[in-house]
């Protein structure tokens, strides 16, 4: 795992929690896939399997007053941020008890209570919003960090470049977190970028950046700690590229014709959960009963969430137009 230089104090409790959070996300996504085949979840469903170390490594380091802008592959971010699992799952069912009232579905998880600003399904579209959230904090001299997650596909969008420029030009406290999983849907990074070393792009906007092994939760956590500290202290943006891999298809409609099964298998062997658990075991920091306990706790939470979503109610058709505008204004 990571060199000791930037290693935080690694307590056994903390490590077990990191492992649990990654397992929690993985099992949740497994459940979502299963529920999709049962047609409980419809529409597009983008799963986070393989990328858990990014959310688990970055998000717990943020303060509750900080802000998060995410993408359509955001289940893991939402869970790490503290959006209740049952509210997230009910949202995917389209039930009004969902975290967006059932209006948004899998791609649009929102939660004001945790400053979770979606769930943006236009690739790159969340970056300008993150700049604006940080601009508001900058103008009011509030020392908040806005963490903005996006994939390697967003790097090709104009909004990516506009947003990096604005954040640097105006000295805004944005933590850009690129989850580079090597594919923009089915287009390999090398087929969409002239420069595939993504974090270098930040340099052209004079933004401090680093690339980190996104399959190594401890490395991600250490880098994120440096990054968040830098943003908080300087008020300037920081760019963190997490090199990761998506184990499952892009969405449930993806036959994965664009990559070899062997490639997926090779990455699975480097999987963040497998790797971290192996490291904990090799260092005798985890016992089989710990794993059993974690799996049992996660399974119980998921079962509760499924029951909650199942018991959820459909929004009456009569309120379809509600909240197109604020109540009482239109």
């Amino acid at each position: 795992m990571s060199a000791a230089v930037d290693k935080p104090r690694l307590s056994r409790a903390h490590e077990l929690d990191l492992l649990k959070q990654m397992i929690r996300i993985r099992r949740f996504e497994d459940a979502c896939a299963e529920l999709y085949t049962q047609e409980k979840i419809r529409g597009f469903l983008h799963l986070y399997d393989g990328e858990e170390a990014v959310a688990a490594g970055v998000i717990p380091l943020l303060e509750s007053r900080d802000r998060i802008v995410s993408t359509y592959r955001e289940h893991g971010h939402a869970l790490m941020r503290g959006v209740p699992m049952k509210a997230a799952l009910a949202e995917m069912y389209g039930k009004q008890e969902g975290c967006s009232g059932g209006r948004g579905g899998s791609m649009h998880l929102f939660d004001r209570a945790t400053n979770f600003y979606g769930g943006n399904a236009i690739v790159g579209g969340g970056l300008p919003m993150a700049v604006g959230l940080a601009l508001a904090d900058h103008m009011r001299k509030e020392n908040n960090v806005t963490a903005c997650f996006f994939g390697d596909g967003a790097v090709a969008e104009g909004e990516f470049h506009e947003s990096l420029n604005l954040a640097a030009l105006w000295t805004l406290p944005v933590l850009f977190v690129c989850e580079n999983n090597l594919y923009a849907m089915g287009t390999a990074l090398a087929l969409s970028e002239s420069e595939t070393d993504i974090h270098l792009k930040a340099a052209s906007y004079r933004i401090a950046s680093e690339a980190v092994d996104g399959m190594d939760v401890i490395a991600v956590e250490a880098a994120a700690r440096r990054a968040i500290q830098a943003v908080r202290q300087t008020g300037k943006p920081y760019f963190l590229e997490c090199r990761t891999y998506r184990f499952r298809a892009h969405s449930m409609f993806d036959a994965q014709l664009y990559r070899d099964k062997a490639e997926v298998e090779a990455w699975r062997k480097k999987g963040p959960i497998l790797r971290f658990r192996g490291w904990l075991e090799a260092n005798h920091m985890i016992h089989p009963e710990d794993i059993a306990r974690i799996e049992a706790e996660v399974a119980a939470e998921i079962a509760d969430a499924v029951a909650f979503a199942e018991a959820g109610t459909w929004e009456p058709v009569e309120t379809l137009a509600r909240f197109t505008y604020a109540e009482g204004t239109a």
């Binding site: 967006s100 009232g101 979606g118 909240f323």
Partner: peptide, 8 residues
């Protein structure tokens, strides 16, 4: 506003 269930 609509998509977030009136949160934002």
């Amino acid at each position: 506003r609509h998509m977030s269930g009136n949160q934002f």
